[in-house]
Structures are given as C-alpha cells and as structure tokens.
Amino acid sequence: MRHLHNTLYVQTQGTYLHLDHDTIRIDHEGRKIFSIPLHHLEGIVIFGNVLLSPFLIHRCAEEGRAIVWLTRSGRFKARVHPPVSGNVLLRHAQHHALADPERRMQLARRFVAAKIRNTRFTVMRSARDAPDPTDQAALQRTARELARALGQLEHLSNQDLDAVRGIEGEAARTYFASFTHMIRSNRPTFALDGRHKRPPRDPANALLSFLYTLLASDCQSALEAVGLDPQMGCLHALRPGRASLALDLLEEFRAPVADRLALTLINRAQLQHRHFDHHPGGTVYLNEEGRKIVLTAYQKRKQEEVRHTLLREPLPVGLLPLTQARVLARYLRGEMPHYPPYVAQ
C-alpha cells in the first residue's frame, strides 16, 4: 500500500501553530486563518518568525513527523525529528559497508552515474523542445559531453573516490553552463551564469537553491523513516552536522524533480522578476509571494506519477526518496548485489 501525505509549509510571519484536539490550528494576530487534520501531514516546514506550541512539537515527535526550521529566505537552520527508528542492525550494516573503500566507491559511482544520466535526460528533452536552433545545438553538445562523462565514470578504478567527485563536479559545471539554453521565457531575468550557492546571486540560482533545500529535507526524512543514518554517506565528505547520505541520495533527484520544476515555473512565466528580492551585496532570494508559488507547485509535483524502473509501475514523485531509501537499505543489508538508483524515463 502506498501512502503519500502532505507537508505543511508555513511562511506567514508572526503565525502561531498549536493543537486543537487532532487538528493543527494556525492563528495570526489572534485570529484563526487555517486548520488541517494532523493525520494528513508527514511533516512541517516553517520559514522565519513562526511559533509552534510545545504540545504540537511533542505530538509530532511521538508520531514520527519531522519539523524543519528555515530562515525566511529558505536557508536551513534546524530540524527536530523523533527518536531513531529502525533495526540497529541496519545501521550497523550501513556503517560496515561504507567503511569498505570498494563498496563505498561503487555506491558513490552509482549516485553520480544516476545524476549525470538524469541531467542528460533533462538536457536532451529541452533540446528536443527548443524552438531556437542555437539553443538546440548547444544543448546537444552538452548531452554529448555528459555522455563522455558517463564513459569516464565507468572506467575508473575501484579506489579513486576523488576522481568520481571530479567527474561529478565537471559534469555539473558543463550542465549549468548550458542551463540558460533551456530557458524560453524572460531569459534576461533568469539567465544562469554558473552555479552560485552561498549566497545565490541571481533569480535562477535562488530558485534552484530553494528547491534543493526542500528536496534535501525530503531525502533526509526518507532515510530516517527506513532507519538509515543520514549523516553517514559515501560521495559527500563526512562533516559534523552534514547529512551526507541525504545529499548523496539527493543527487538522483536534482534534475528530474527540482530542475525540471524550476524550468517549468520559468518557462510558463509563473515566476517573474517581482517574485525575487535583491539584497545589498548582490544576494538574491525568493520573496514571500515567490515562495508561495514554488511551494504550491512543489506539492503538486510530488503528486504526479512517474514510472519507476525497478518497480516497473507508476509511482508518485513524492514517494521516490522513500522508495530509493528502502532499496538502499536492502543493498546495505546484502539483499541485493548492487544498488539500482532512480533513472528518469
């Protein structure tokens, strides 16, 4: 049985969330503005100055709902989740597997291969739909370069993790260098001059960073739900406070989930220049109206169905991280010879 619940995103500043029996009630300036049954939600994400009652936090912890705090502009600040679930033997198997350089390398290579394949799929799809021959030719060149990167990845030794990271980084630079060629609406506003993360310096980077933050939170929740340690990854270096495995899993979904949604919002002119705030020093972030548009579209995107190559059946986009987390757990327990990542079709 498949279950896909909603995530509650709250960004109206000064709101207060509290329990009213089995319902979350949202008040603003002493007046009720919204309510939703608690059992409809899988998590809560709040932006900036939003308050939650202690009883609501306790109830979410007891029932396994994560709460994520972001800044008003969408940068991650903190996360509260329930006590660790799952079999301790699974985490032991995870740590044992990732301590093996060869298995760690194999898994990292599969994450990167999936990322490049999914990125290439997005590029080829945009090339096919591009009305301008110049854009079409540029995207076709990018697709060929990404295909060469996949070939390089296949011929690496089983000990060269830095080389895997190098190929991933170069493929990402190639992809983002051609991102503007996939933009068909309001290109002067959304042209992308390389990937700038911290801080984003143009609307396209601000949009991508915001979507990646949402998707990374979903990946971390999925790993925790199956009992894996989101901190113990293979591709991303281990650092205190970094959910390395969640970032590894995120690589599979950047292009088919976040990037394609970003391009849809831009090319359908759902986002405009007015939906971004430009701050001193050149920093750019989505404003409240822009975030509302993106959050609504993100929730709708999670309800759409795609065909999963392993399951061979339609699956809601919102269940992809959880599905892959379960597949990863099977691989780490030794139930599968290889980890099959998600590849878009």
Rank of each mutant, 00 (worst) to 15 (best):
D259V: 09
L247N: 13
A243K: 13
R239Q: 13
E251R: 06
L271T: 06
V226A: 06
Q270Y: 09
M232G: 06
H273Y: 13
L271D: 03
A269D: 08
L263Y: 08
M232F: 11
R254D: 01
E252M: 14
A237K: 13
R274D: 08
A269L: 15
L250M: 06
M232K: 11
R260T: 13
A255Y: 03
P230V: 02
L228W: 14
P240D: 10
D248S: 02
G281D: 08
G241M: 03
L238K: 15
A262K: 00
G281V: 00
A255T: 13
L249V: 04
A225N: 13
H278D: 04
L250W: 04
A255G: 06
R268C: 14
L238M: 11
H236C: 11
G241C: 11
M232V: 05
P240F: 11
R239A: 12
R239L: 11
L271C: 08
H278V: 00
R274E: 08
H275R: 09
A269W: 09
P240I: 10
T264A: 06
I266M: 08
L235I: 04
H236Y: 10
A225P: 06
L263T: 08
E224G: 01
D248Q: 03
P240W: 14
L261C: 05
Q272F: 12
N267M: 13
N267K: 07
P280M: 12
G227H: 13
E252Q: 15
R274M: 01
R268F: 14
V257S: 00
H278L: 02
L261G: 02
N267I: 15
V257Q: 00
L265W: 01
A258S: 07
F276I: 00
A237Y: 09
A225M: 12
E251C: 07
H275A: 03
R268I: 14
H236A: 13
L261Y: 03
A243V: 09
A262I: 05
P280V: 00
L228G: 04
D259W: 02
L250Y: 06
C234V: 10
L247D: 12
G233S: 04
H273C: 01
Q231K: 07
E252F: 09
R242C: 13
E251A: 10
E252R: 14
R260L: 15
R239C: 12
S244T: 13
H279C: 11
L247W: 10
L235G: 04
A243M: 12
A246V: 10
S244F: 07
L245W: 05
